[in-house]
Design a binder for these strands. Structure first.
Length: 582
DNA sequence: TCTACAGGCGCG
DNA sequence: AAAGCGCGCCTGTAGA
């Protein structure tokens, strides 16, 4: 077997594609050009999943290059996404110096406001548009610019305080970028009939010509009767609020939690009405028609779309699918789903980061909240949960805030980690996750506020405003380290699952899952990811092997991030025809 | 008539 | 039951 090049850098050159092979020391060992439309075939032959081939494709943006390869019928094992890695390295406190990399350049395009602006661009990203990023701006595509950025990134890595962690983060982030494209290509198996049945059960029959569903009409009539106004408008917040005031419900808002405080005959049907209209508008027949008309829901995932490193999504609300609709997520005939989520991912990650053996003990082999109760820290699981969430989110009032001190006494190391992160953010500093993703610095506006408050002629209001902004930022950085590190653990888990699934043979006996596309129609593949949960769509015959892969990848992720520290990440895992089963 | 924003609620 | 992190999407309204 010939030794594969370590890096294979790919870029555009007019109508052609340039591929430059680099060895371990980043010296150029080969350079070829092919017509742009021939490149995907080349990639599938030379960079595909071949045993022993450790080629890592280097490119400006996975969302541009990879869908072409998938469309050509191939999967790529590894890549280095310069856009995503640039964003990490630019901000990371683990990177020393690297002024050239940190200088504002077009490599910053799309990294900041991906979530905000991707919606308009996204629908075409995977089909037509060759150069747009999720941010809408063009990234450098020229081979010299691409090579230069790659070398800047490798130099930054080389001088980092903890290159091993950062390297792991960049690899995981890039693997995530590949997976995001694959998830879109494969789609989430979606049974139209099941979705329609749920809609009919909950909302009633669809009104004539897209009119108001019957159940919504009925419940609306009950609400209007209780409001003593047959013409009351229930869908306009200001009008509804006025109607409520007329009958003595003096709420400040029409939000569910506030309305629930009032004891009045209108409340129950009104809450029901809001629930029904929400389902109808967010995931009703129109959604089904637009997003899952033919057996698959294909959202656009946006890796790195959240500042903490979590993924965002664009189109169809992939990360907000109501649990009520979960039964519509249903394997194809002859296939099954492996659904797995991590129990209490964030507090487990916190225990490991802080090296808190007491918290790790409470978490071992059981529900972490039960473990906290067993230690005698608090008396019920519900209290343990609300206290832990309060500690990680920065609660100061209510039951949550009241319970946090007990946690602080029992788990001083873990609590010190989040408390310190809050203090740093409060002071205007930057915090960093376990693998090296750093929070953004305070905004210009934030610094202005603090500056005004420290002026000698600062008003009481100036100081109050600045203090509030300061505490808000403290809560953000407090949560950033935990949420961000949890996202890193999840990426490592995903990357492990993905790699192991690629090693599974195709399943010739299974009926082809045609809607998953040629690449995935005969092999187990990931089809959903939601922060701490994954779903694999697999030929039924491979389900047990897939379950083992999913479990084993979780153990590997724990070891990759936290070495020998004794923390475990138990999975709730089930092999099931549909994702609705508890 | 078009766009921007706020309210509200779905998910972790 | 609610306050405390991170998101995206839908609706109605306010403002240009």
């Amino acid at each position: 077997m010939t030794a594969a090049p370590r890096w294979r850098v790919v870029a555009r050159d007019g109508e052609q594609v340039v591929v430059v092979d680099l060895d371990d020391s980043r010296s150029e060992v080969a350079r070829i050009r092919v017509p742009a439309d021939a490149w995907p075939a080349l990639a599938s032959v030379e960079g595909g999943v071949a045993t022993g081939d450790t080629t890592r494709w280097v490119w400006n943006d996975t969302t541009h290059w990879y869908p072409q390869v998938l469309a050509a019928g191939a999967v790529i094992a590894r890549c280095h996404d310069l856009r995503l890695c640039h964003a990490i390295l630019r901000d990371s406190t683990m990177v020393v110096g690297a002024d050239d990399l940190r200088a504002a350049t077009s490599w910053d395009a799309g990294a900041v406001d991906a979530a905000g602006t991707s919606a308009a661009v996204a629908p075409t990203l995977f089909e037509l548009d060759a150069s747009a990023t999720p941010g809408g701006a063009a990234l450098p595509a020229d081979i010299n610019a691409v090579l230069a950025e790659f070398r800047r990134q490798q130099d930054a890595l080389g001088s980092a305080t903890d290159p091993a962690r950062l390297r792991l983060l960049l690899a995981a982030e890039s693997a995530g970028a590949l997976l995001a494209a694959e998830l879109h290509a494969a789609g989430l198996p979606w049974r139209r009939g099941i979705h329609e049945r749920i809609l009919a059960d909950v909302l009633g029959e669809r009104g004539p010509a897209g009119g108001v569903p019957t159940r919504i009409q009925e419940v609306g009539a009950v609400v209007r009767a209780a409001l003593e106004d047959p013409g009351a408008s229930l869908d306009s917040q200001p009008k509804l609020l006025r109607s409520l005031h007329r009958i003595g419900v003096m709420a400040q808002s029409t939000s569910r939690w506030e309305l629930a405080e009032y004891d009045h005959a209108v409340i129950a049907p009104l809450l029901e009405y809001k629930k029904l209209t929400r389902l109808a508008s967010a995931n009703g027949w129109a959604w089904l028609e637009e997003w899952a008309p033919a057996g698959r829901f294909r959202p656009v995932y946006v890796p790195g779309g959240v500042v903490t490193g979590r993924w965002a999504s664009s189109g169809g609300g992939a990360l907000q699918l109501p649990r009520m609709l979960r039964p519509a997520v249903h394997a194809d005939d002859g296939w099954t789903l492996v659904v797995a989520d991590v129990a209490q991912l964030e507090p487990r990650v916190l225990a490991a980061m802080a090296g808190d053996l007491q918290l790790a003990d409470a978490a071992r082999g059981r529900d972490l909240y039960d473990g906290i109760v067993s230690s005698g820290t608090v008396s019920t699981r519900a209290e343990a949960k609300v206290a832990m969430l309060g500690a990680m989110y920065g609660a100061t009032t209510g039951d949550s805030g009241r319970l946090v001190p007990a946690l602080r006494r029992a788990y001083p190391r873990a609590m010190a980690l989040v408390d310190d992160a809050a203090r740093v953010g409060d002071d205007g500093g930057v915090v960093t996750t376990w693998l090296g993703r750093s929070s953004p610095p305070p905004s210009e506006r934030w610094r202005e506020l603090q500056g005004q408050a420290s002026d000698s002629d600062a008003s009481e209001a100036d100081q109050t405003r600045a203090r509030r902004a300061s505490r808000d930022r403290g809560r953000f950085t407090r949560n950033f380290v935990v949420q961000g590190t949890a996202a890193e653990w999840a990426l490592a888990w995903l990357a492990g699952v993905r790699a192991a699934l690629q090693e599974l043979p195709e399943c010739p006996t299974a009926e082809a899952a045609v809607a998953s596309g040629a690449v995935f129609s005969r092999r187990a593949h990931l089809c959903f990811f939601l922060h701490d949960e994954i779903i694999v769509h697999t030929p039924a015959a491979h389900a047990d092997r897939v379950a083992e892969i999913v479990r084993s990848a979780a153990a590997s992720a724990a070891h990759l991030l936290f070495g020998g520290f004794p923390i475990d990440f138990p999975l709730d895992l089930r092999i099931t025809s549909d994702a609705g089963k508890a």
